[in-house]
């Protein structure tokens, strides 16, 4: 089986972001997607701290402490970009104006519940930031994650064991091993790593999987 590395996963997500889309890329792995957006497409990146039309990182020495992204890293603004306050920013999100949000995850359930904010460990200091708003606000929420934990447990699960971020909010999962569409009927497999069979994928995840249209024989 040929797993995708992080850059290949980011490139695969970027392929599916169309011209003209308003997109929020979450902190961590999803941030990589920006590096692979096709140059011929105009795509609007929103950062929830208050900018639309976010550009790449500035050249060394040109950083501006007043121009940062949600991860508090210095960024640039593209011509045509704009600044706004937090109530407007989250109105863009919650109001359904953002087309696609790409988030990382600890776990996703087959009905689309997302857990990505808190491990629930008793001594951990909880922090949520915009995770709950991002999860439920966008028209489509993509999750980008390695399918298995370091110890081999599936992060696609029947029921999240970590505290959830949002209910039934994930529409698609891009992982290193397979891509899944998530809906009321459950998880259906859109693409798989080369050399992997559906039964092997079922064994890896331990959850019921539907064969997507592209996997149907004939």
């Amino acid at each position: 089986m040929q797993r995708l590395n992080r850059e290949q996963m980011a490139r695969r997500v970027a392929q599916d972001i169309p011209e003209g889309a308003y997109v929020n890329l979450g902190i961590g792995l999803p941030t990589l997607v920006a590096n692979f957006l096709p140059a011929e497409r105009e795509i609007f990146l929103q950062s929830e701290n208050g900018l639309l039309g976010m550009g790449p990182a500035p050249a060394p020495g040109a950083e501006d402490p007043d121009l940062i992204n949600a991860g508090k890293q210095p960024v640039t603004l593209l011509p045509g970009g704009s600044f706004f306050h937090h109530a407007d920013s989250f109105a863009m999100m919650r109001g359904g104006h953002i087309d696609i949000c790409v988030l990382g995850a600890f776990q996703v359930s087959t009905r689309g519940d997302l857990a990505n904010w808190h491990t629930g460990a008793p001594y951990a200091i909880p922090a949520v930031g915009g995770a709950m708003d991002l999860a439920i606000g966008a028209k489509r929420t993509f999750v980008m994650m390695e399918l298995l934990t370091k110890t081999g447990e599936s992060k696609l699960v029947d029921q999240c064991t970590y505290p959830i971020t949002g209910m039934a909010c994930v529409s698609r999962i891009y992982s290193d091993i397979a891509i899944f569409d998530i809906g009321p009927q459950g998880a259906s497999v859109v693409e798989m790593a080369e050399g992997l069979t559906l039964d092997e994928l079922r064994a890896l995840t331990g959850v019921p999987l539907i064969a997507g249209a592209a996997l149907q024989p004939g």
């Binding site: 929830e48 306050h85 937090h86 109530a87 920013s89 989250f90 999100m93 919650r94 200091i125 909880p126 922090a127 949520v128 930031g129 915009g130 995770a131 709950m132 708003d133 606000g137």
Partner: peptide, 13 residues
């Protein structure tokens, strides 16, 4: 600590 999702914090303010 009162932990509030960021968008709810903005909306409540």
């Amino acid at each position: 600590l009162e932990l509030v999702p960021q968008g709810n914090l903005a909306a409540r303010i």
